[in-house]
Nucleic acid binder design. Structure first.
Length: 575
RNA sequence: CGGGGCGUAGCGUAGUGGCUAGCGCGCCUGCUUUGGGAGCAGGAGACCGGGAGUUCGAAUCUCCCCGCCCCGACCA
């Protein structure tokens, strides 16, 4: 039994000055966590109980799926990370340190290397596979900007799993097993979430999905179709466009357009010159970039911007991507700033990437590659050839769902889990092979799967709170019921103690506010702030042989008989 | 790393050149109080983020450093 009289807990009346998001504010005010440094937090008893409850749920689901738990140190030698190149690729985000002999070490930001080596050390036959192993452990990343309390920390707890299979079919099965386990886990944690397709990005590999918990303070933006449930990371959003069915445009026609370097000014000019009806959507924007020292042009409809994040994620094999600068224009006099068009791309040595909306046969208004001149009736496929279609245009609410053509919404969320089909990248680099049926050496294929355990505490808090405090799902809460004794006499305290003991004996986890000196108001406020889902008040109503049972979430209050209260409480808690 | 803001007791804050750094919460002692963050009285707790400088005098002005928060860049 937790007793408020001796619990290491001090709730705060005022919001901490450095906390803005709800989860951070409430977790600090309710005495769950305290900040040690930017992105580094300690857990007080209530917080650690909550944390461990979440950890327990995750562990049960992982074990239930047949994954085996292992544990690695946080302090790791440099060598494995050098072999996969991540010692350098990870950059300043990696916490590095040296021992007394000046050997390099790191604090593990993620453990693909170590898991791969563990399997390599023990297994060498296809008969040993498939295998899925996991750990729950601290991760260290020197984030450029930790934020939102424990949502993005520099030290955080992660459950990371890795699957090992002999072939792609096996990887699919292992991936699906993790996906299923994650759905069960997050559902048990009381989180509402969407599974979105994502870009594998820096981790390499092919397929990847994120588990996103919608909440307004989340830092991930994603696209959701409310009709069919399609959900995607903005980077991975797919644009579906019908083939062009309009009239065939006449031949290209140049027209004078002095002082119209922007799309807006161009549209105004067109409407003035050609009698109205022109919109930014009918113009073609040519964004010039340098991709690893190769000039490229990205074509998007004039009413859209190029989303560099999307472009970067979808441009395969490009390390360095930047917009054209003055010097780049100077070196290529054929490209007239403000008047660039795709017509001469071949001649100018530009690779043409285009948004899927720039469909074969469609015609556009665009620059003429001549100062103060634009061209209309420029037809895709006739007047210029797109080298490659690419998802690079900004995504907007109202864009069309690629699955069911309904306008999508854009929402914010916290990333609570991420699953990857890694493939053979790490196995290859670290030489993890097993012998197959024919005695031939095969590189193992891997998956990696993560859940932010400490972040889940914040995500659950974000989705489960109100103005006055936290409201935990029962399984996560530090206790099932919060019993408050009020009054001056011994009777309510003795009765409450009795009820608390009975509740405990029938398996309920009890928090008992047994403080004699605190006023009822203080106790009620504290109970509401702490957020245990059921509050039992033993006080005034005792005169009629009653106690009060409150539902924290709805605020509903019912009086129940003090006699045999434990049974009644149990019934209501388990309902 | 760019932009903005902040640093005074455990927490929230006032004080913009002047004498002993003020208030609220919390904490300690006593009395009263006990169904919505009680009242009265007394008390403890601060090298005013650090260093250097200007000045008769610095929390306050100047410079440097450190730390923290927010927006952006970045990010399993």
């Amino acid at each position: 039994m937790l007793r408020m009289s001796s619990l290491l807990l001090r709730t705060l009346r005022d919001d901490p000055a450095d906390a803005e998001v709800a989860s951070h504010r409430l977790l600090v005010r309710a005495g769950y966590v305290r900040r040690i440094a930017a992105g580094i937090y300690s857990w007080l008893p209530l917080g650690y109980m909550t944390f461990r409850n979440i950890e327990r749920v995750i562990r049960e689901e992982m074990d239930g799926a047949g994954f085996q738990e292992v544990h690695f140190p946080s302090l790791l030698p440099k060598e494995p990370y050098e072999r996969t190149n991540r010692w350098s690729e990870y950059g300043p985000e990696l916490f590095r340190l040296q021992d007394r002999k000046k050997n390099d070490y790191l604090l593990g930001p993620t453990h693909e290397e170590m898991f791969t080596l563990m399997v390599k050390g023990e297994y060498s036959s296809y008969k040993d596979l498939p295998l899925s192993i996991y750990q729950i452990q601290a991760k260290f990343r020197d984030e450029p900007r930790p934020r939102s309390g424990i949502i993005r920390g520099r030290e955080f707890i992660m459950k990371d799993s890795y699957s090992f299979d002999i072939d792609d079919a096996g990887l699919q099965t292992s991936y699906q097993a993790h996906r299923d386990a994650y759905v069960k886990t997050f559902t048990r944690l009381g989180l509402s979430f969407n599974i979105v397709s994502a870009q594998a990005g820096a981790m390499g590999g092919s397929k990847s999905e994120e588990f996103l918990a919608p909440c307004p303070t989340g830092e991930d933006t994603y696209v959701l179709c409310e009709k069919c449930g399609y959900a995607a990371n903005v980077e991975a959003m797919v644009t579906k466009v019908d083939p062009y069915t309009g009239d065939t445009a006449p031949a290209m026609e140049n027209f004078a357009s002095p002082n119209t370097p922007t799309i807006d000014s161009l549209v105004d000019l067109m409407n003035a010159t050609f009698g109205g009806g022109y919109t930014a959507e009918m113009t073609l924007k040519n964004i010039l970039l340098m991709a690893d020292d190769q000039p490229i042009s990205v074509l998007v409809p004039g009413d859209r911007e190029v989303d560099l994040k999307r472009l970067g994620a979808n441009l395969k094999g490009v390390q360095d991507l930047r917009l054209f600068e003055e010097g780049d224009f100077a070196k290529r006099p054929g490209l007239v700033k403000g008047y660039v068009g795709p017509q001469d791309a071949k001649k100018l040595g530009l690779t043409l990437y285009a948004d899927p909306r720039v469909v074969e046969g469609s015609h556009w208004v665009t620059g003429a590659n001549i100062k103060d001149t634009h061209t209309r009736y420029v037809v895709a496929g006739r007047d210029f050839i797109v080298d490659e279609y690419i998802e690079a245009a900004e995504v907007r609410a109202g864009d069309i769902c690629p699955e069911c053509k309904t306008p999508v919404v854009i929402d914010r969320a916290i990333e609570i889990g991420h699953i990857f089909q890694l493939g053979r990248k790490y196995a290859q680099a670290l030489d993890l092979t097993v012998l197959d049926k024919d005695g031939k050496s095969q590189v193992v294929t891997m998956g990696s799967y993560g859940i932010g355990v400490s972040r889940a505490v914040a995500a659950i808090a974000e989705q489960n709170h109100d103005e006055i405090g936290l409201i935990w799902p029962r399984e996560i809460a530090p206790a099932d019921i919060h019993i408050v004794a009020t009054g001056r006499d011994d009777l309510p305290f003795d009765t409450a103690e009795q009820i608390a003991k009975e509740c405990e004996s029938i398996g309920l986890r009890v928090m008992f506010d047994d403080r004699r000196d605190a006023s009822p108001g203080v106790k009620f406020k504290d109970a509401e702030l702490i957020g245990i889902p059921f509050i039992v008040i033993v006080g005034k109503a005792l005169a009629d042989g009653k106690i009060e049972f409150r539902y924290r979430k709805s605020g509903e209050k019912v009086e129940i008989s003090a006699e045999g209260a434990a049974k009644e409480i149990q019934t209501r808690v388990l309902a």
